[in-house]
Design a protein around this nucleic acid. Sequence first.
DNA 1: GTGGTCTAGACCACA
DNA 2: GTGGTCTAGACCACA
Lengths: 119, 119, 119, 119
Amino acid sequence: MAWSFSGDKAVYLQIAERITVSILSGKYLPSEQLPSVRQLALEAAVNPNTVQHAFCELENAGIIVSKGTQGRFVTEETQVIENCRKKLVKKLFNDFASKSKELSVTKEELLSILKEIEL
Amino acid sequence: MAWSFSGDKAVYLQIAERITVSILSGKYLPSEQLPSVRQLALEAAVNPNTVQHAFCELENAGIIVSKGTQGRFVTEETQVIENCRKKLVKKLFNDFASKSKELSVTKEELLSILKEIEL
Amino acid sequence: MAWSFSGDKAVYLQIAERITVSILSGKYLPSEQLPSVRQLALEAAVNPNTVQHAFCELENAGIIVSKGTQGRFVTEETQVIENCRKKLVKKLFNDFASKSKELSVTKEELLSILKEIEL
Amino acid sequence: MAWSFSGDKAVYLQIAERITVSILSGKYLPSEQLPSVRQLALEAAVNPNTVQHAFCELENAGIIVSKGTQGRFVTEETQVIENCRKKLVKKLFNDFASKSKELSVTKEELLSILKEIEL
DNA sequence: GTGGTCTAGACCACA
DNA sequence: GTGGTCTAGACCACA
């Protein structure tokens, strides 16, 4: 997967979001070690400070923990991860619903997207 | 309608987006005059320059036009407006689809949102 | 001749320039009365204040004079008019020369314009 | 080179024009980095925002590109630069021709400027 | 250090 | 009143 950033949002937030998704989707399992700051900075072609900043966000959210010099790990508490996922799904749905209404999306348009997703 | 801004994105972009939605949803009709810079700045409690910046974005996109000191107006070209809506709907759907997959949203979860929207 | 304005420059300056050219080119002769503010404002589709402002510039330059309620007239002093023309030609040439150099205009390009002008 | 501005035109436009000329004349080569906003603001003795505004103009025109925090660069597409030059030369010539006619410039006067330019 | 965003507020041209 | 330009200066993200 390539790393591309949208310009609209701070890069560190986009990185944080992406790592979060990787955890929620099971790419990184509970208690698993995450790639190092340097590693990610290289992959994403950004300054290590930026990755650092992203990790900081995730630690505040509680879904990763830092074990000093050993590196960073996904939290062991699956409950935290599950809550996080629920929160994101809820936000995703709310945003989609409100924006759909704003744009007066029709039933026909809605059906088109459902087919694509239900694959 | 209250004006609240998410710290994630530049305020001027959020204002631009909001005005765009107002135009697409028909709150402002083609050729209709928009509120003045100062008016919006007051309402949104931001600096006039920030609103100016937002308007500039919309002019570049072509959905509003400035008529010198007479004020700003929604474009008369309904085609431009319609294209803009299509682009936004497409983006909304793409984003929703990709994020739904990332979060492994289930059919059950999907149905819940559909009910809410189809009201 | 239509009245169109360039946006880059203040409208009142463009009007002043245009009237000046009309005088230098002999469209208005020395001592001749000029159209009224209202008249010009109508023609140019601008606010009378703007024409007023333009006239003010020309009075300061000395090539028109105001005779109270009788209206405005081209100066009788042909020397003033001639000097004004010389100044403008000189400025035109200097500007053209310096910009030509900046853009590294070639002899070939120069010849093309000469033909057009010498008609 | 001194930075002086004519009160006639917006300062940001004059800065944009000047940078354009520098690019067209080869002072800045394709892909070359431009001075920073702050640097130019200092040199020109204007507010950084004003330089920002000027750069924004040039980005819209496509002859410079912004690479985030790395700075701004002349476009690599030499075609864009060449087109820009052609457009400016054409405008220069058209303006010169029409103003020459307006001022009834004589052949003798024209010859004087040619000598100066053809050096 | 570099670009980007934002505020608070002034001043001008134009209607 | 309306848009446009500009200053002085702050604060953030990123390298």
